[in-house]
Design a protein around this nucleic acid. Structure first.
Length: 473
RNA sequence: GGCGUGAUGGCCGAGUGGUUAGGCACGGGUCUGCAAAACCUGUUACAGCGGUUCAAUUCCGCUUCACGCCUCCA
C-alpha cells in the first residue's frame, strides 16, 4: 500500500483514489516570466516521481499543471521587454517544456494557461458572491472575506491569533475589510496596459489563487485526490484555494496534500545576490547533463531540504557510471535473447531488490531507501557475471521497469568515433605483439580525447569519460 | 510573538528499542602486461544533558544549534 504524508492531517495516509484506480492530481506549475530555476524543478521532479510511482502501482494518473501567464511579474516583464504579454510568456512556456524534456519529466495530461480560463474564474467568483464569500472594495477589486470562512487556516494550521494583522502588511494601505483578505479579482490599473478582461465587477484581471481553483475544477472536478506544490505554497496559496473552492462548492477540495521542501545551493538559500541562483540552463551550460541533474534532484526525500552542490553533482557521475556499467554488462549477456516470459528467470537477489525498492517508495516515496536497494542489487548482480542470456534478459526487463520510476537508468547512447575504434584495434595488435609501450601510447591517445579503454575478456571496450570533471561553480 | 521541521561516520544520505543501509571519497588485497571495471576487505557514526528500559542512535523531557512559514516565492 502506498502511503504518503498528508500536510492536512500531518500524518501518513494510504493513497486510495476516489475514483476507481484513477488518481486525479493537481500540481502547481510555473509562472512563466523567466526561465525556471533548479528550485522550481526540484518540485516538478518530486511530482514526476509521485506520478510515476502511482503508475507503477498500477493506477492511472490524470495530472494537471497550470501555467500562470498573467500576474504582476509577467505583466511587468512584458512591459519591460516591450512585447505583448502572450509573446512574452510564450518564450518561457516553450523553455519550460524544453526543460522538462531535458530532465526526463513525464508530461502532465493537462497544462491549462490562466489566460485560457478567465471565464471559469469569473464564474467561480460569481458563485462566491452568491454565497456571501466575496465583496467588492472601494478600489474596485474583489476580495474573499476570510472571517466568513470558519475553517480558514486549516491546512497551514494557522489561527486568527497566529495571523497577526499588520505583521508584514500595513493595514492602512488596503481597501480591504481585513488585511488578510485576499484578492479574487484585481481592478484594472494603468500599469496593466492592455492586459484586461471584462467582468461583472468591472475591468481587471484575476487574482492568483482563483486560477488554480478554477482550473482544477475544470479538469479534475470539484473534489480530487491529490494536490501538491512547494512548502511555500501552503500559505497563503493553497489555503486560499481551499477557501475559494470549498466555499463555493461545499465539498472537500483536495483529499490529500503533499508539499516538498526547498532546495538550497551550496548550503544557502538560492538568491541572485549570493551568486548561487541557477536556472536549469545555467547548470547545463556548465557541462552537466539533464540526467545527472535529474539524479541529483530526485535523490533526496521530498520533505527534506535538498542541498544542491557541484561536489555532489560530480559524485553523481561516478554513481551513474556504476549503474551504466552494470546495465552494459547486462545487455552484453542478454544479447538478443527472446523476451517471452522472462519474469520467471529473475534470480532471487533481483526479486529481493524489487521488493525492497517497492517497499521503500511505498513508504512516502523513500527514494534513498529505494536507491539503496537498487545499488545492493547491482552489487549482487555484479557477482553473477557472466549470466545466462535468459537471466540477463529478465534482469534487464526489471531494470526497464524500475526505470519507468527513476528515469535515469537508461544510459545515453554514445556514438563511438571510427578513428577511436581504429586506435583500439591497433592497440589490440600492439598487445598481441607484447609491444606495451605502443599499447600504452594508443591508450593515452584515446584518453586525450576524453575516452577510456577497458580491456575485457571479449576485447577492448570504449567508454566516454564524464565531461568537464573539474567544473565548479 | 505564533506554528512547524531537522541535527547520523571525511562528504551526501536511509533506517532501527538489541542484528551490514546505500552512494561518493580514501586504504589494503584478488584479477590484469600495466590499467580500468568488477570482486574481497578496512575506517564503524547517530548534537549535548537527563529520564523510561534488561537494553536507546531509535521512546520521553530539557538544552544548544540550524532551517521553514505567519499575504501572492517551487
Amino acid at each position: 500500500m502506498f502511503k504518503i504524508y498528508n500536510t492536512m492531517s500531518r500524518s501518513l495516509e494510504n493513497v486510495v483514489p476516489l475514483e476507481d484506480n484513477h488518481v486525479r492530481l493537481y500540481t502547481c506549475g510555473p509562472t512563466v516570466y523567466n526561465y525556471a530555476h533548479i528550485g522550481n524543478y526540484r518540485a516538478y521532479m518530486f511530482e514526476d516521481l509521485l506520478r510515476r510511482w502511482i503508475q507503477y502501482k498500477g493506477m492511472r494518473v490524470t495530472q494537471v499543471q497550470n501555467l500562470t501567464d498573467v500576474d504582476d511579474k509577467t505583466i511587468r516583464g512584458s512591459r519591460d521587454a516591450g512585447v505583448p504579454l502572450s509573446d512574452f510568456t510564450q518564450t518561457y512556456k516553450d523553455a519550460f517544456f524544453a526543460d522538462l524534456k531535458v530532465l526526463n519529466i513525464e508530461p502532465a495530461e493537462h497544462y491549462p494557461a490562466a489566460t485560457d480560463c478567465i471565464p471559469e474564474m469569473i464564474a467561480l467568483i460569481e458563485k462566491l458572491f452568491e454565497k456571501g464569500l466575496a465583496y467588492k472594495s472601494d478600489d474596485g477589486s474583489v476580495y474573499f472575506p476570510i472571517d466568513k470562512f470558519p475553517t480558514y487556516g486549516k491546512l497551514a494550521h494557522l489561527d486568527r491569533e497566529g495571523m497577526r494583522a499588520g505583521a508584514r502588511v500595513d493595514q492602512d494601505e488596503y481597501d480591504k475589510d481585513n488585511a488578510a483578505d485576499f484578492a479574487l479579482w484585481k481592478a484594472y490599473v494603468p500599469e496593466d496596459g492592455d492586459i484586461v478582461w471584462d467582468s461583472p465587477w468591472g475591468k481587471g484581471r484575476p487574482g492568483w489563487h482563483i486560477e488554480c481553483s478554477a482550473m482544477s475544477e475544470k479538469h479534475l472536478g470539484k473534489t480530487f485526490d491529490l494536490h501538491t506544490g512547494g512548502v511555500d505554497n501552503i500559505f497563503p496559496h493553497h489555503e486560499d484555494e481551499i477557501a475559494q473552492s470549498e466555499g463555493a462548492n461545499d465539498c472537500i477540495y483536495s483529499k490529500q496534500w503533499m508539499h516538498c521542501a526547498h532546495l538550497q545551493v551550496e548550503g544557502k538559500k538560492m538568491s541572485k545576490s549570493d551568486g548561487n541562483f541557477f536556472t536549469l540552463r545555467e547548470i547545463l551550460d556548465k557541462g552537466y547533463t539533464g540526467r545527472e541533474i535529474r539524479y541529483e534532484l530526485i535523490g533526496t526525500h521530498y520533505r527534506k531540504s535538498l542541498n544542491f552542490t557541484f561536489d555532489s553533482l560530480n559524485a553523481n557521475r561516478a554513481a551513474l557510471a556504476r549503474l551504466d556499467d552494470f546495465h552494459a554488462k547486462l545487455q552484453e549477456c542478454a544479447g538478443d535473447t527472446e523476451n517471452a516470459e522472462l519474469e520467471i528467470h529473475l534470480p532471487e537477489w533481483a526479486i529481493e531488490t524489487e521488493k525492497r525498492f517497492s517497499a521503500a517508495l511505498d513508504d512516502d516515496l523513500n527514494i534513498a531507501g529505494a536507491l539503496g536497494a537498487l545499488f545492493d542489487g547491482v552489487h549482487e548482480g555484479n557477482k553473477c557475471f557472466p549470466m545466462s542470456g535468459k537471466t540477463a534478459a529478465s534482469v534487464s526487463n526489471l531494470w526497464k521497469k524500475l526505470n519507468t520510476v527513476l528515469g535515469f537508468l537508461e544510459p545515453p547512447k554514445e556514438e563511438i568515433p571510427t578513428e577511436l575504434i581504429e586506435l583500439a584495434e591497433a592497440r589490440v595488435a600492439a598487445k598481441a605483439n607484447k609491444d606495451w609501450a605502443e599499447a600504452d601510447r594508443l591508450r593515452a591517445a584515446v584518453a586525450a580525447v576524453g575516452w577510456t579503454i577497458q580491456d575485457t575478456p571479449t576485447g577492448p571496450k570504449l567508454k566516454k569519460n564524464c565531461v568537464n570533471q573539474s567544473l565548479k561553480a
